[in-house]
Design a protein around this nucleic acid. Structure first.
Lengths: 214, 214
DNA sequence: CGACACTTTGACGCACTTCAAAGGGGGTGG
DNA sequence: CCACCCCCTTTGAAGTGCGTCAAAGTGTCG
């Protein structure tokens, strides 16, 4: 949905981009490579991640329809891959930077995007100090909000992606799903379809991280 | 990347600020309050943190001489306190924003500061999925680099602060210090003075998080 | 010198990991 | 269209690193 200034880089800049399609698990860019493009998700889901030396993988974020990603300057902080088949708009960094140098509205909007990313990352840290149950509850609520299909959602990613995002093992994630189901907080018609059956209780679980002082 | 413009907001803007002094543990600002000022550390150390509902505390970052902090827009994401006695320069947000609206160089520099904060936060997440030993090793190396007194450093903060930054308990941090000492990776003349006796080994410990694909 | 806060050490419990194997579910070939 | 296979998910059992609770050691400042 494009309104006035609510969605920065909609309109003028977005039209400077090329569309690009990626199939499931396709690489979009790789960590440490030069950052040539900035992306907007038209359709589908993308993950950014770092490969750890011990073989594990830490997912930095998931990006869905309308989200921007890949706005690091110079060098990629993460690798990026398509979680599902995905359509993106790729915008040349040099183009954006040139525009930002003239139109300070554009510069401000880049800043807003980065600030949002920072806030998201800060919330992610808060998650990492909670119990598996709390992490998963928070994750499901965030996903429900972002996918906004109400309380009945279809996760675009599998258990491994969830685990690598939350800093847990697949087994723990799976067990925790089962546990939340047994507590009647969610229902699991299929492994990826999640029904939030008791959102207030889930929110209270997740809230430990969210609300600092009351 | 350090070139001519490496230290944004030095000079012109900084001179628009007021100096402010805080004694150890004094509150600088509080989470969820409106963000009126942006700060630069002249001297001393500052911590930002969130109080969790269960009584724990998650420290977001430590800021030392030369660092900027508190550049959230509108509302504070964290509380901020002085770790040691500290001298700051406080710059009115409205002043900076007005300037940024005209001088797009200022806007760009705000963006750079936010990007750095984002990068630091991303590294922080990587830390949280490592073992206590790896977290502490990475922390000590970061501190040694930032304090740059070589391999013999004086931590400005106590064990509790370290614990709350790394997402561990004081006891675990203390035990891990002792353990690193027994492995001859560090020496502990006093609890806050740390000598890195084997930096390569410490770096290798910490590296699991840092270097993704080789 | 004594009081208090911080740090260290010890013993024990538990949440999550690890290792192992048994379900599903979807897609392909026969 | 069914059957088989592969991969993802779930479940089980055992191990362990960190948290918790408790107390002793250490440094600092009145």
């Amino acid at each position: 949905m494009s309104s006035g200034t609510a969605y920065p880089l909609s309109g003028p800049i977005e039209s400077l981009g090329l569309s690009a399609s990626f199939t499931r698990d396709a690489e979009i860019y790789e960590e440490n490579n030069p950052a040539e493009y900035l992306y907007k998700v038209v359709d589908g889901t993308v993950r950014t991640y770092k490969a750890l030396t011990d073989g594990r993988r830490q997912i930095g974020a998931f990006y869905m329809t309308g989200d921007f990603f890949g706005l690091e300057d110079e060098v990629r902080a993460f690798s990026a891959e398509a979680v599902t088949d995905a359509n993106l708009v790729a915008i040349k960094r040099s183009t954006v930077m040139a525009l930002a140098a003239e139109e300070n509205d554009v510069a401000r909007q880049l800043w807003v995007l980065t600030s949002r990313e920072l806030e998201r990352t800060r919330n992610h840290i808060q998650l990492m100090v909670e119990s598996a149950e709390q992490r998963l509850a928070a994750f499901l609520i965030e996903m429900a909000d972002r996918l906004d299909r109400g309380d009945d959602i279809e996760l675009p990613m599998g258990r491994r992606d969830v685990a690598d995002y939350l800093g847990l093992t697949v087994e723990t994630v799976s067990r925790t799903f089962t546990h939340l189901e047994k507590m009647a907080l969610i229902a699991l018609p299929t492994s990826r379809r999640i029904v939030l059956r008791n959102r207030p209780a889930l929110e209270q679980l997740a809230a430990v991280a969210r609300l600092g002082c009351q």
